[in-house]
Each structure stands twice: as structure tokens, then as C-alpha cells.
Design a protein around this nucleic acid. Structure first.
Length: 285
DNA sequence: GGTGCACCTGTTAC
DNA sequence: AGTAACAGGTGCA
């Protein structure tokens, strides 16, 4: 029953599965005994990290066939040590790197990532996950693995069958019209998310912010967590606290100024610095 | 061009 | 148990 495929650690060092999955990037991973269970692009995945290896099971795709997808999702080909050297500008970052060594930025499916972060506005981690699960159960397709059943995240056409009123009933609140509108834009082809990968950071961000419900913070989340823009630097309440307390002597500084400063200070991998500062500052509350 | 406030409603904090 | 404040922001006055 536990005869899954094993990946050896040397291949992916450093790697911290728990920090990666519990740092607020993805919202559908659930702990089931010693496994993390979630869905990646229509595949139900069980994954756990031992001392020397990472083990996973999958369905419907076989473990062997899904290695490239897993590798892409966790950015295993990325050299973290190089990135650490780039962003390690001071003892604040250094201590977070030391504490969460191996935490990786995920590469998620842009469409799902966009919906999740539109739903994140003025909400909380727990509720965002519940919302994503509700959408999946209502509009996705069931997938079963080792007796566990979860649902795929609905594609744009599946979710387009939901009316704004229905989304409100499912608990999206004031975000319902935003999700409905963004879904329509993707389903109709006026917003081509995958194309944004070829845009510059600024161009892609401007394009995303044309969508009602997507402001600078949510645009940056979509860009860093699904579109390979590692210079994106989402400024939420925790990052704002970390930056102003640690770098601006507690002064009140506008977000656009903070963003400009952070990208200049941390460089092309600023987004990685953001993730470590965010995670560290949020857990120390 | 910058600032302040309402927004749905589930969680969390007394 | 019951109530109030808050929550991974954004759009609009």
C-alpha cells in the first residue's frame, strides 16, 4: 500500500516540504497522518519527507510519469544556494534562511493561483483554503487515491457555469463578482495567463491589474507563485510590518516605495526574500 | 495624485 | 455561549 516512488534527497537539497507547503503559497494541501495530500494539475498527490528522501503517491497519473510535474511544481531544478547568496543582504534575511532553509517558491497553475489570490483579499488563510475546497467540490471532478477522494480545481469553463449569486452563496462574499469576471475573461480568451510568462514583470503586472479585484499585491502573488517572476514582491500586512520594523525604524512608508526599495535592495530574486520575511514575521506573531 | 473607508462573512480572540 | 474585532486587499469617493 505504501509502495510509492521515492526520490532521493541529494537531487533536491536543500528542500523543506513542510515550510514550503505551509507558508501560504498554496491553499489545498491537507495533513493526513504523516502525509500531505493535495491536487496538482488534476492529479491527487500524497507526499512526505523523511530524513533522506521524499516519497509520493499519485493518481490518476502514475508516479513515474508525474516526476517532471512534481519537479516543476517544487522548482527542484532551481539552485537555492545561489539564490540565498543573492538575497542574503543582512542578518534579518540570514536568520530566516537559517530557520527555513529549503523552503521553496512553488510554481503553481496560473489559473488556480489567480482565483485563490483573488479570494485572499481581506480574508484569512483558513478561509481561503475552505473557499478553494468548496469551489473544487462543486465544480471540479473527483479523484481517488488510497481511499482518499478529493476534487480537481475546476478549469475556467467549469467555473464559468457558476453565477455570481451562486459564488456568493458558496461564501465568496464581495469577491464573487471579481471571480466571476476574471473567470469570464479567461474562458473567453481576453486574458491569456500562460502568455504572461513571456511578458516582462511590469507588462505582466499591468495586464493582471486590468482585472477588477486584482491590485498590486494580488498581481505580485500570481506573478511569483505561478508565472516565474521571482522579482515580484507581494506586500501584505506581514511583509509591510517586517519591512517597516526592520528597515525603516517603524516609520510609515507607502507600499509602492517599499516595493521599489525591496526590489532594488534584494535584487532579481527579491520575491524569495519576501517569502522568507513573510513566513518568519507571520509565525512570530 | 494621495488618503480614508466600505465591503461579505468565516475565524479568532476575549 | 455569545459578541466583537479582525482578516494575505481593492475600488471608489
Amino acid at each position: 500500500m505504501d509502495s510509492g516512488l521515492t526520490m532521493q534527497l541529494p537531487f533536491i537539497e536543500p528542500f523543506d516540504l513542510v515550510s514550503t507547503l505551509e507558508s501560504g503559497q498554496a491553499h489545498r494541501w491537507r495533513k493526513e497522518s504523516h502525509w500531505y495530500v493535495g491536487v496538482i494539475r488534476g492529479n491527487l498527490i500524497k507526499i512526505k519527507q523523511g530524513k533522506f528522501s521524499v516519497t509520493f503517491h499519485s493518481a490518476p497519473a502514475t508516479e513515474e510519469s508525474i516526476i517532471p510535474l512534481i519537479s516543476n511544481y517544487f522548482r527542484l531544478e532551481e539552485n537555492l544556494e545561489t539564490i540565498y547568496m543573492e538575497i542574503n543582504k543582512d542578518f534579518h534575511v540570514a536568520s530566516m534562511i537559517e530557520r527555513y532553509r529549503g523552503m521553496r517558491i512553488l510554481c503553481q497553475e496560473p489559473w488556480e493561483c489567480m482565483v485563490a489570490f483573488i479570494c485572499s483579499a481581506n480574508s484569512n488563510i483558513s478561509r481561503i483554503g475552505a473557499t478553494m475546497e468548496t469551489l473544487s467540490e462543486h465544480f471540479g471532478k473527483p479523484i481517488t487515491l488510497d481511499g482518499i477522494t478529493r476534487y480537481s480545481f475546476p478549469n475556467p469553463y467549469q467555473l464559468a457555469s457558476a453565477t455570481e449569486a451562486e459564488l456568493r452563496r458558496l461564501g465568496l462574499g464581495f469577491r464573487a463578482p471579481y471571480v466571476a469576471y476574471a473567470t469570464k475573461a479567461v474562458a473567453e480568451g481576453s486574458l491569456e495567463l500562460e502568455t504572461l510568462r513571456n511578458f516582462t514583470y511590469q507588462e505582466a503586472k499591468a495586464k493582471l491589474m486590468q482585472i477588477s479585484g486584482i491590485g498590486p499585491k494580488i498581481a505580485d502573488c500570481i506573478l511569483i507563485f505561478s508565472l516565474d517572476k521571482l522579482e515580484a514582491f507581494p506586500i501584505d500586512v506581514w511583509v509591510r510590518r517586517a519591512l517597516t520594523e526592520w528597515y525603516f525604524e517603524g516609520r510609515k512608508v507607502r507600499d509602492d516605495i517599499l516595493l521599489q526599495w525591496a526590489q532594488q535592495y534584494f535584487g532579481p530574486y527579491a520575491g524569495y526574500a519576501q517569502q522568507y520575511l513573510f513566513h518568519g514575521r507571520r509565525l512570530q506573531k
